[in-house]
Design a binder for these strands. Structure first.
Lengths: 216, 216
DNA sequence: GCCTGTGAAGCTTTTCACAGCG
DNA sequence: CGCTGTGAAAAGCTTCACAGGC
């Protein structure tokens, strides 16, 4: 099977497989079985084979998968063969942490500008970048010949206005850390990361475990 | 339907509904329809009604849902009626951002201690807490009478060892920001947040859009 | 013999559409 | 009449189990 649309769940797992494969490549491993790779990625062998089967037939029966080849194929499918440019809006503590996050640059995500609304922060340097005023977003995106991804690290109150600005500047992918649902046109993709939501989901499972512990 | 197990997907959406309801309550809204609430939460009316139906029957036909009552019911189901204690391991930039994250304390997640392995960081103050050495984790968790949730904000290389320590200290819920799959016993719940994975998923969608734009 | 690739079965989740009730 | 609650249908996803090919 080739170049069809992948299931959402498969798309979400491919980066994890990729991470595991890069780890293996770094240790000099050249061939890996579905069982081994699935274990590393926290998945299972059947799932992994099914996922990879959507991309094509890259394995060798009786042997396994070639690590380098798989890295290349998954990268291709994820659109990672070229670098992606990123801007960050909101230079609070979270924004500040994201600028320096080593995982981004390692994986080809280049942060080209950072923004804040607060005059006290504008003009300061952060990891080799100068914090720009939010009003400059459009012009700086243009100067960079368009930007792929915008990260929103502002308070919830500012997030929708920032999202509107990002969309107007032509950005089509948004990673939103603000705890609010932002509205964007259909052609713009949003990933929402809400840290409190994660803790609340954990809280649900903890409570369930407690109930069992108490009642049973 | 009452006190059964909720679908995983429902559990993941409840915190988002809760966030929207708290927003409405803050604006003095007392009654909300499934249509309005779903819009705010980025869901749809049918989905929302189905999700809420797992918790019980709280709506009034022809009218809608009572905002305060729903807040209370969802909080109960998520185990949020009491505060949850949290420790953070890893006081790099991300860990530092998490300690001060206002969403945590607002929602009843109390950070009781923070840890790092680096002697240069141990002993320093961060948001009113003193950074402790990782080796003290067990004893400090005990001093607090047990801790609900551990957040891993270390590099990938340290994450598994930290996870082991958290589990040994009796912690049953882990939020892992390190880009690696950690192994824990079945009774421990892990939520994985990988920032690079999110960008890579966006990259996939951007590439798909590009292909359509170029080829069609 | 061994591990991949994949139809088919089974399960979960979403959507539909309307009965039920204030 | 309007909006909830919910069976039933549809869609999506995972697991099974084995054929296929090195």
């Amino acid at each position: 099977m080739k170049k069809a649309k992948l299931p959402q769940t498969t798309v979400a797992r491919l980066p994890v497989y990729l991470r595991s494969l890069v780890y293996l490549a770094g240790r000099g491993v050249q061939i890996v079985s579905s069982e081994e790779l699935a274990q590393l990625a926290g998945s299972n062998a059947a799932q992994l084979r099914k996922d990879l089967s959507y991309l094509g037939e890259f394995g060798t029966r009786g042997v396994g998968y070639d690590v380098d080849q798989l890295i290349n194929e998954i990268s291709k499918w994820l659109g990672l063969l070229r670098d992606r440019s990123v801007v960050i809006a909101g230079m609070g503590r979270l924004g500040g942490a994201l600028v320096g996050y080593p995982g981004f640059s390692q994986k080809g995500f280049r942060i080209v500008a950072v923004f804040d609304h607060d005059p006290a922060k504008v003009g300061r340097g952060v990891d080799g970048l100068i914090v720009r005023d939010m009003s400059e977003l459009g012009s700086i995106v243009s100067q960079n010949g368009g930007v792929d991804i915008g990260i929103i690290a502002t308070p919830a109150s500012a997030a929708q206005a920032v999202a509107d600005q990002l969309v107007r500047s032509g950005i089509r992918g948004i990673l939103n850390f603000a705890p609010i649902t932002i509205e964007v046109p259909d052609e713009v993709f949003v990933r929402q990361v809400d840290l409190s939501v994660e803790l609340q989901i954990l809280s649900y499972h903890l409570q369930k475990a407690e109930r069992v512990g108490v009642l049973v």
